[in-house]
Computed example of a mutant assay.
Amino acid sequence: MRLRTTMALVASATTLAALGTAPAQAAEGANRLSGPSTGDPDVFLTYVGCDNLFGAAQPPQSRLNLGPYTAPMGRRSLGLVPAASGTASGPFTRFDSLASFDSTVAVASTSGSQGVSYVMSITPDNVPGTAWRGRAALSAPPGSWTTVSTAATAYDWTLVDLATLSPLGPAETATTAAFAAAHGDGAGFSIIGFGCDGSSFNIDEVRGSGSTFDFEGTTLATAVDVNRTSVDAGQSVSLTGRVTDPGGRVTGDPLVLESRRPGGEWGAVGDLVLGGPGGLARVDVPLTETTEFRWHRPESQYADEGWSEPVTVTVAEVPVAAEVATSK
């Protein structure tokens, strides 16, 4: 899974000059995500340089995780694995009012993680061709979730030339609201990122631009197939299991075959079965009586457990030989 890069969006003066336009209206309520794509042009995940917003950066790998610890929303979160130190990954949020702006993200790292937050804004007191750039160092300690808020963070602000991105004066430190009170309100964007030290981390409960995003498991479907549904006693049947994602792609998730007499209790038939050719699980089972089968998909980091619909294999009854009476 890949994150979007802001470089194509904000590295030019033309894009930054467009900060004066208001963002599109975001949908209300929490949005459940099963990957890094939000589908929202005003709030999305990206990666930037830790020392320079427009400097070199490398995309991280992403994955869904149970936890870690107790996830802020639901049971899972999005894990991000930096390719190397020096890159910060996290949510980009567009805003139309610096004075009232706030975006938040919950962060957890079992080893702790260092990060950075940037804010870019155009206010009434900066001349055309310039913009204000705010930067703040961040830290998420190990052992629990930490919520980072742009409104609660003090930034070092510098006026920069949009053509060269070079500073045009000394820096000053202020929160977003305090800076807007001193320089006037304006539109812009923010980025909250972690992983500057190269440590893996997780994020959840991303809030910004009127939207809330909760990272949860993807929805998988499990199906069962049997080569025949009627056999004689002692014969075997071949059962295959298939797990697919919402797009119909076979995922190859491991499965456990379960069986029962019709109306009885389900029980496992053997051990966990790994996907073979084509990602399908396959087991051959000899039968002595009519039996129902289904595949159980155990819970994983990225999906809840699930079961296939049951299938019944009928075993033909062996006729009882008639007793022959004899007379003397």
Rank of each mutant, 00 (worst) to 15 (best):
L3Q: 06
L3P: 03
M7N: 06
A11M: 00
T14P: 01
T15G: 15
A17Q: 14
A17W: 11
G20Y: 11
P23E: 08
Q25C: 03
A26E: 00
A26Y: 11
G29K: 11
G35L: 01
D40E: 09
T46F: 12
N52L: 12
S62Q: 02
R63Q: 06
N65V: 02
L66V: 15
Y69S: 04
T70S: 04
T70F: 06
M73K: 13
R76W: 13
S77Y: 12
S77G: 14
L80I: 15
S85T: 07
G86Y: 08
D102A: 03
S103P: 01
A106D: 15
S109Q: 07
S109V: 10
T110V: 15
S117H: 05
V119G: 03
V119F: 09
M120N: 08
S121M: 12
I122R: 06
N126H: 10
P128K: 10
G134D: 03
A140W: 10
S149Y: 02
T150L: 00
A154I: 08
L159V: 15
L162S: 03
S166L: 14
S166V: 09
G169L: 09
G169P: 04
A171H: 10
T173A: 12
T173R: 15
T175Q: 07
T176K: 00
A177C: 02
A177E: 12
A182S: 15
G195M: 11
D197L: 07
G198F: 15
N202E: 07
I203Y: 13
E205V: 10
E205Y: 04
G210P: 09
T219I: 05
A233H: 07
V237L: 03
V243A: 02
D245T: 11
R249Q: 10
G252Q: 05
D253M: 00
P254C: 02
P262T: 09
G267L: 02
G270V: 11
L272G: 07
D284N: 07
L287D: 05
F293K: 05
Q301G: 08
D304A: 13
G306R: 10
G306W: 13
E309V: 14
V311P: 07
V315P: 12
P319N: 01
A322V: 14
E323D: 10
V324T: 12
T326P: 02
K328T: 09
